[in-house]
Structures are given as structure tokens and as C-alpha cells.
Design a protein around this nucleic acid. Structure first.
Length: 572
DNA sequence: GAGTTTGAAACT
DNA sequence: CAGTTTCAAACTC
């Protein structure tokens, strides 16, 4: 390499040690720019950017990097020495940092050690290709050739800045959007991969599956978002490949990382079935790709889901990554802090489920009991029928008695305050054979199955006494009891679900309101549901005191005889 | 360390 | 805006 000494970069300029502080979470994101001050050029305001004095006589050549152990602090700063008065001569530095991989500001551990050292040859370090230029710092100790990114070429540099800004006013803004409250700084915690940022422009990767540092998102340690137009993206939450990488990163095993990445890209592990051309078009907003838009349609759906979550998280940039941040949950299979949590999570209590199950079981047993009563009634009728036959042999009487038996069955079925649509007269032709129970019914009645089938067998036995018509009606009766049993149980269950919907919707509404209002304190919404938002902007508990609607009492009230003592309202 | 791959930036 | 070229970092051997 022709290491042409840049015109002035390394010799120095007397002038400024441009000390630029920038978010370390962008790490060495290639063109992550924080140009608070750039040679006096007028630059866009950069909310996260904290510029510091550019004239330090002592030029300590320091980099102040906030420790990852302080993830909460609002600013995660790295103060880079820029300029030529560094006490560390270039010649002394270079051996320490081989040009290609020492660039720096290493990414994975979030503990940048070096200033960036570009290797530009053809851009004069005046284009965004140059990391130094893009980062708003002078080249210092770089391996660049024909460098103009220094004080001595300030005029040229300023022109380049203006040209760049003219082309793209946001060129020097940070590429990674994140919460203004500063969750960025925690993004790089080892083992706690907090990805709250979102690439403003998104990446356009095609071949790297966004699992290599070619990808700006991956390099910045954030998930790809709806802004990205990447293909075959595997940088989404829940991606097996990404998890493998994170794990490898966790143990700091580069070989493992690369192996995992390569395996991921080649589809050797994990979601091979995911491989898909997932462009941002498929990601926009909530436009999830469930259709066969490409060979990877299934993946898209999954990715979209994860990315939607991520989008919501970062989109609510300020305070409420959604839905809930699970920090280091040991049970969580993924190191990511984000996991889906139902809005109903706080509404449904274990006791409710138990009680609901109890109600359903009781309803089922009730129906079973009614069946037994019907059997008794039918048996009595059959007995009288046998007597009648023996004495008269009158066919018409037999028919009448059968009809009467059927009526008794109907009446029996209609007992209680049930919702019964007894259409035995109209659809009797359809029920000449016992209707098989649905799988749901079978599942619900697993405990009662023996009893009921025994009863059914008994009924058959009774019918076997020689009265085909009676047997037929009895079968029909049993079948209809099952139908009714199923209907009751499912109706109650439906009622319970309906009761869940209302508080769930209210809760969702409140959650959205909370995000929009971006409150950092507790508040009470119009509907009286309170949300607790922790100080760093993450909603920890949502709608804690949403008045719970008893899930099962209404269902239980449907039964003629209330069986259970139901829970009180508002139990939390 | 040389060569290749990759994707952003720049250009048309 | 899409396609192409340039560029330098990332990666492979």
C-alpha cells in the first residue's frame, strides 16, 4: 500500500485537538456520524451529540468511554482525540493497531480503545467513505493516502462537508435512531443485547444475511427494522442464527461467531426454512408478509413479527419499548430483552383459569347428570311400554308410547335454564345415528368419559330389549345430550373469552396512550387504568389496576343452579 | 498480507 | 428513482 503521507494529518496541526464525543453504541459503525462541530461548518443539530472543547492544549488523547456497567446514564460517551498534538505519535501507534482490524473502536465489547484509522486511498478522506470524515473527526494516525481530512486542508474539507450536506442534509446525523432518554448506551451490554436503536435508513444487505459487519445494523448491534431493504435477513429477534452469533459473541469466541454466521448464511443452521428475500417492502409498518411473496414467505412472516416488535420498541423510541422488557429472564431462551407479552397477561390469573376449568367440568358433569335422569325416565317409559305390549299388543299404542318417550326426552333436555335449540322434530332424520363428539368435547369430557359411555352402553342395553324405535330414540337422546353438553361448555367458554376481550382492548388502548404521551411518571388514564412506567422509559407494568372482570361468574350464572363460589371483582 | 467480498456512498 | 460505479471495510485464504 502506498502509504502516502497525508498532506498534514500527521504532523500536525497546532490547532485543535478536536475532541469529539459520540455515542459509543454506534461503535464503529462505519459511517455513523456525529458531527457536532466540524471545522466550523454549520452542521445539523445532533440531539445526542455532545461536543466538547476542540481546543485542548494538553490534548490528552483520551477516550472516555462510559462503562457498560453504567447503562442507565444518559450519555454514553466516547471522547476521541482528534488532532495532531496527541502525545502518541503516529509511528508509535501504528504498530499497535494493524491497519485493517485495529480500526478501533471495536464493536463487540463496546469498549472502544482506538481512534478510527482509515485506509482511504482515493477519496482523500473527504467523502463519507472515510470513517474519520464520516465521524466528524480529523484523520490522525490513519493509514490513508492523500488525506485532506485535516486542519491544513480545512478549506477543502469544509467544502466537502458542505457538498455532502447538500447531497444529504442528514449525512452527518447518527444513523441509529434511539431513545433520547438514552437507552442506547445499554445496547451493547454483553449478554444483555439491548437493541433499542433503529437504523434510520436501514441496510440494504443482500448476501450477508445481515449477520456480518458489512451490515450496518448488525455492526451497530441493532436489529434490522422496517427501514431496511435487506434480503434474506437473519438479523431479527428470534433468529436462531442471530442467537447463535450472540451466544458466540457472549463467549467472545470469534471462531464460533464466524462459524455461526457462515452457517447461518449458508442455511446450515436454524431457520433454514426462513431463507427469504425479505425486503423492507415487506416490512413496512404492519404490513406483514404472510403471503407467498417469495421463496421465503414463511420467514417473512416471522421476521416481520419480530421486527414489528422491534419496530414498536424503537418506534416508541422514547419511553416504551414494547411490550415489556424482560431483563435477563432466566427462563427466556433468548438473550434479547424483548419478548412478546400478551396484554391480557395481567388480567388473567391462574386462579381464574382454575376456576374456569372447574366451571366447565361442573357444567359437563351437570349435563352428564341430566343424562342419567333422562335414562331413568326413558327406562320407566320403556318399562311401561313393555307392560303395555304384553297386555295389548297394540301397535298404535306402541307408537304413541314411543312418541311420548321422545317427548319426555325432549323435556328432559329442556330442563334447566339452558340455551337449547331442540330441533329433534325437524332434524330427526339427520340424527339417526349418534353424532360423534367433537375433539373439543372429548377433551373437555375426558374425566367424565367413562361414566358417560357406560351410561350410553347401558342405554343401548335397554334398547336391546326389542324396541328398535325406542333404541333409536334413545341413541338420539344420548347424542343430543352430548351436543347439548358441548354447547353448554363451549358457550360458557365463549362467554369467558368475551369477557376477556373488553379489558384487553382497554388495556391496549391505554398502553398506546402511554406510549404516545411518553410520560415518565405514573398517571391515571380516563378509564382509570394506571400504567407504571419506570424511569428509563420502559413500561414495566401496564394497567396494573385495570378492574378485572370476573371471567367465569357470568358463565356460571348461566346454569340454573350456581355451583361455584366465584371470585370477587378486582382481585389482582 | 494479498486478494476477495460486501454494501454504502457516489454518480449517472 | 433505479441502475451502475466507486470506495473502503470486512472477510477469506
Amino acid at each position: 500500500m502506498d502509504d502516502l503521507p497525508p498532506p498534514s494529518a500527521q504532523t500536525g496541526s497546532e490547532e485543535p485537538d478536536s475532541v469529539v464525543a459520540f455515542d459509543v453504541t454506534a461503535k464503529k459503525l462505519a459511517r455513523q456520524l456525529d458531527f457536532a462541530e466540524f471545522g466550523g461548518a454549520v452542521l445539523p443539530e445532533l440531539p445526542h451529540f455532545q461536543s466538547q472543547s476542540r481546543c485542548h492544549s494538553e490534548s490528552p488523547a483520551v477516550m472516555v468511554v462510559q462503562s457498560p456497567s453504567q447503562p442507565k446514564s444518559p450519555q454514553h460517551l466516547m471522547v476521541l482525540p482528534v488532532g495532531t498534538q496527541s502525545p502518541h505519535p503516529v509511528a508509535a501507534r501504528k504498530p499497535d493497531f494493524p491497519k485493517s482490524r485495529s480500526r478501533s473502536v471495536e464493536t463487540k465489547d463496546a469498549t472502544p480503545k482506538k481512534q478510527k484509522q482509515c485506509n482511504c486511498k482515493h477519496s482523500r478522506c473527504l467523502k463519507l467513505y472515510c470513517e474519520c470524515f464520516a465521524s466528524g473527526i480529523y484523520c490522525d494516525g490513519c493509514n490513508c493516502a492523500n488525506c485532506y481530512n485535516n486542519v491544513e486542508n480545512e478549506v477543502s474539507r469544509r467544502e466537502a462537508v458542505e457538498t455532502t450536506l447538500e447531497r444529504n442534509p442528514n449525512a452527518f446525523r447518527p444513523k441509529i435512531a434511539s431513545s433520547p432518554h438514552g437507552p442506547r448506551e445499554s445496547r451493547d451490554e454483553i449478554g444483555e443485547v439491548v437493541m433499542l436503536g433503529k437504523h434510520n435508513k436501514g441496510c440494504h444487505c443482500k448476501k450477508s444475511s445481515c449477520l456480518k459487519k458489512y451490515c450496518e445494523c448488525f455492526q451497530a448491534n441493532i436489529l434490522c427494522s422496517e427501514n431496511c431493504k435487506c434480503m434474506d435477513c437473519k438479523n431479527f429477534e428470534g433468529s436462531d442464527e442471530r442467537q447463535a452469533l450472540l451466544h458466540g459473541d457472549h463467549v467472545n469466541n470469534m471462531a464460533y461467531i464466524q462459524q455461526a454466521a457462515n452457517a447461518a448464511i449458508t442455511g446450515a443452521i436454524g431457520s433454514s426454512g426462513y431463507a427469504c428475500l425479505s425486503t423492507s417492502k415487506k416490512r413496512k409498518g404492519s404490513e406483514l408478509c404472510f403471503g407467498p411473496t417469495g421463496k421465503d414467505a414463511p420467514f417473512n412472516g416471522i421476521a416481520q413479527f419480530h421486527q414489528a416488535n422491534n419496530m414498536l420498541s424503537s418506534g416508541a423510541s422514547t419511553s416504551s419499548p414494547l411490550p415489556v422488557a424482560h431483563v435477563g429472564s432466566p427462563a427466556a431462551p433468548e438473550p434479547s430483552k424483548f419478548s412478546f407479552r400478551s396484554l391480557l397477561a395481567d388480567l388473567i390469573q391462574m386462579n381464574d383459569l382454575k376456576e374456569l376449568c372447574s366451571v366447565l367440568v361442573v357444567l359437563s358433569s351437570e349435563a352428564s347428570k341430566n343424562l342419567a335422569e333422562q335414562r331413568i325416565a326413558v327406562k320407566q317409559i320403556n318399562d311401561s311400554l313393555q307392560i303395555s305390549r304384553a297386555s295389548t299388543g297394540d301397535r298404535s299404542q306402541l307408537q304413541k308410547t314411543d312418541a311420548k318417550a321422545a317427548d319426555v326426552e325432549c323435556e328432559s333436555l329442556n330442563q334447566g335454564d339452558r340455551i337449547v335449540h331442540h330441533n329433534s322434530n325437524s332434524d330427526s332424520s339427520d340424527t339417526t345415528t349418534a353424532r360423534p363428539m367433537s375433539p373439543g368435547t372429548l377433551a373437555l369430557m375426558c374425566d367424565e368419559q367413562d361414566t358417560m359411555f357406560t351410561g350410553a352402553a347401558l342405554a343401548h342395553g335397554l334398547a336391546g330389549h326389542g324396541c328398535n324405535t325406542s333404541s333409536h330414540m334413545l341413541d338420539k337422546s344420548v347424542s343430543e345430550v352430548y351436543i347439548e353438553q358441548e354447547r353448554i361448555v363451549l358457550t360458557k367458554f365463549r362467554d369467558c373469552l368475551n369477557k376477556l376481550i373488553t379489558p384487553g382492548e382497554i388495556k391496549e388502548t391505554n398502553s398506546v396512550e402511554a406510549r404516545n404521551e411518553n410520560h415518565s411518571k405514573n398517571f391515571t388514564s380516563n378509564s382509570g387504568y394506571r400504567q407504571r412506567i419506570i424511569s428509563n422509559g420502559v413500561i414495566k407494568n401496564v394497567a396494573l389496576s385495570a378492574p378485572r372482570i370476573p371471567l367465569i361468574d357470568a358463565a356460571a350464572h348461566h346454569t340454573s343452579n350456581k355451583i361455584l363460589t366465584l371470585p370477587e371483582n378486582g382481585k389482582e
